[in-house]
Amino acid sequence: MSDIADRVKKIVVEHLGVEEDKVNENASFIDDLGADSLDTVELVMAFEEEFGIEIPDDAAETIQTFGDAVKFISEAA
């Protein structure tokens, strides 16, 4: 797994308090990992902080799964 994916996973595990093996490619933050809409806002902020990028609100809305996050950040970073 890429360095980016590892770092994203670490943030997701920490913020949502979920087991690491639940955080797979297609895991939806809301449907599979127990996040609510505020959790997803905070997650995106944490990604911005970790990777020194800015994720505009309309882009943030497209980040629904762990895979979405890794893909977006890999392209942006």
Binding site: L38, V41, E42, M45, E48, E49, E54
Partner: peptide, 10 residues
């Protein structure tokens, strides 16, 4: 302002 947590107010 972009770093203010969504959990700040609640």
């Amino acid at each position: 302002p972009r770093r203010v947590s969504p959990f700040f107010i609640p």
